[in-house]
Design a binder for these strands. Structure first.
Length: 431
RNA sequence: GGCCCGUUCGUCUAACGGUUAGGACUCCGGCCUCUCACGCCGGCAAUAGGGGUUCGAAUCCCCUACGGGUCACCA
């Protein structure tokens, strides 16, 4: 069983998509089930409708799943198991106020020491706990031994008890914290392989500890994916436009391109350009690089050109708001100077707009007149010869304004390449 | 600061312990050409540093430096 566990607190991040994608691929390869679990335990920060948006994005990328779970639906289990830990003596009630903890944390920071919970409430007797009427949280007790687990990418990992600490599992309002809910839900769904971002690596021993205390003995495998870095070498954040899947889509990058790129970086692949289905046949999660990769939009643009090239003309035409094979073919020619759907659309739209020509204004007008009662020419050469003769222009003074008249631009692809695809629309183009 | 992970051209990467350290993107030149491009051909460019082990190290070990992640009643 594989899972992807997004929280509906923000836009789908490129890193999240990569995690979803890798889970999907591995599930497909091993023919195991794949579930989506929406981690919505933080009611304050949940954003209305975000879950649907995430699901729509997954759908757009062809990432299908077998089941959809909302973490908040498991609240009763979280509480039940929380009190089991309490009764078994593996957890304790903690009455320390947020304020005093904050002060201690700051002090530790000042002393350049790692903050650890000081364990004052761990020593409380049963009667002291019962008599205390203050609000409390539930903390788990740090383990007595090292916690070890295997990471498919990083190798064998080992964490010391003191680095796991007595962390909070139930808040004052008795809702579960992330690590607790996550560990339990993974257990309840019998998740066997957890693929997620490297930022979760230090959560792993905590989650292992929870399940260990609960007597869950199934061995869970992990794969922690290296972070995707921005240009300045830091973790990509909301500030980086490129980190938003929505933004990339709006810019005119194809889903196929984005998938290709996310698999390509930090990985060794047999080819550079490939589809998701192809990747499923050879992808190997253990071959994913251990070091973080920088996001390179230039490379993404190159891949996008390749994927657009592979599109059939009619679908490409629809992507840019037209519905004709000719326009699709024309769009492909423009790939030589554009690499996103949006950039191509601008070029094509310009062709159908009213045009002017600053450099050769007179010649431009002359040509325009010459196109009155223009016969239909199958070949560009005939078309060219006719206009050349009728206008009396030649050389630069002919081609420059002609290009402007046909494309609205003073540079671009060979007119002879463009002509076959626009010859049927000249009436709408020349204006 | 503690813990964890990492370090090959600017970027993504390849190289049973033996290669002139390879490829792709970017960049630069040339060819092509009605323009800008594409395309084709060519070029620049890397094993973080120091110690070991070894006949031989990018590759194995140690140290240093640097980079990243993480240290919440967020997920």
């Amino acid at each position: 069983m594989y899972r992807f566990a997004p929280s509906p607190t923000g836009d789908m991040h490129i890193g999240n998509l990569r995690v979803a994608l890798f889970n999907y691929i591995c599930a497909k390869q091993s023919k195991e089930k794949f579930i989506i679990r929406v981690e919505d335990t933080d009611k304050e920060r949940n954003i209305e409708g975000k879950d649907q948006e995430i699901l729509e994005i997954l759908n757009l990328f062809g990432i299908t799943y077998d089941q959809l779970i909302y973490q908040s639906d498991n609240l009763k289990f979280h509480r039940q198991l929380g009190s089991k830990l309490l009764m078994d003596g593996n957890a304790f009630s903690c009455f320390c106020s947020a304020k005093t903890l904050e002060e201690k944390r700051e002090q530790a920071k000042k002393d350049k020491k790692a903050y650890r919970y000081d364990g004052v409430c761990k020593k409380l007797s049963d009667s002291e706990v019962i008599e205390n009427e203050n609000p409390f949280v539930v903390r788990i007790k740090e383990p007595s031994e090292k916690i070890e687990f295997t990471d498919l990418i990083k190798g064998d990992m080992k964490f010391e008890p003191k680095d796991i600490d007595d962390f909070v599992i139930l808040r004052v309002d008795k809702t579960p914290t992330y690590n607790f809910a996550c560990a339990i839900d993974d257990m309840l769904s019998n998740v066997s392989v957890i693929i997620r971002g490297e930022d979760h690596l230090s959560n792993t021993p905590k989650q292992e500890l929870i399940r260990k205390y609960l007597g869950y003995n199934e061995k869970v495998k992990y794969a922690h994916l290296p972070i995707i870095l921005n240009d300045s070498g830091k973790k990509m954040s909301k500030r980086d436009d490129e980190s938003s899947v929505k933004w990339l889509l709006e810019e005119g990058f194809l889903p196929d391109t984005i998938i290709n790129y996310l698999i390509l970086i930090g990985n060794k692949t047999p080819t550079e350009i490939f589809s998701l289905d192809e990747a499923i046949t050879w992808f190997d999660i253990t071959k994913v690089s251990k070091n973080p990769a920088k996001f390179d939009i230039t490379k993404l643009r190159q891949l996008n050109r390749e994927h657009i090239k592979a599109l059939d003309p009619l679908s490409l035409s629809k992507f840019i708001g037209y519905s004709s094979k000719d326009i699709g073919k024309l769009a492909k020619i423009y790939l030589e100077e554009a690499s996103t759907i949006n950039e191509i659309k601008v070029k094509i739209d310009t062709i159908f707009k009213t045009k002017t020509c600053d450099e050769f204004e007179q010649e431009f007008e002359l040509l325009k007149v010459a196109t009155k009662d223009l016969p239909y020419f199958k070949e560009f050469d005939e078309f060219k010869a006719y206009l050349g003769e009728k206008s009396g222009l030649k050389g630069k003074k002919f081609f420059k304004p002609l290009r402007s008249l046909l494309t609205g631009s003073d540079s671009g692809p060979n007119l002879s390449d463009i002509y076959p695809h626009i010859k049927n629309y000249l009436g709408e183009i020349i204006k």
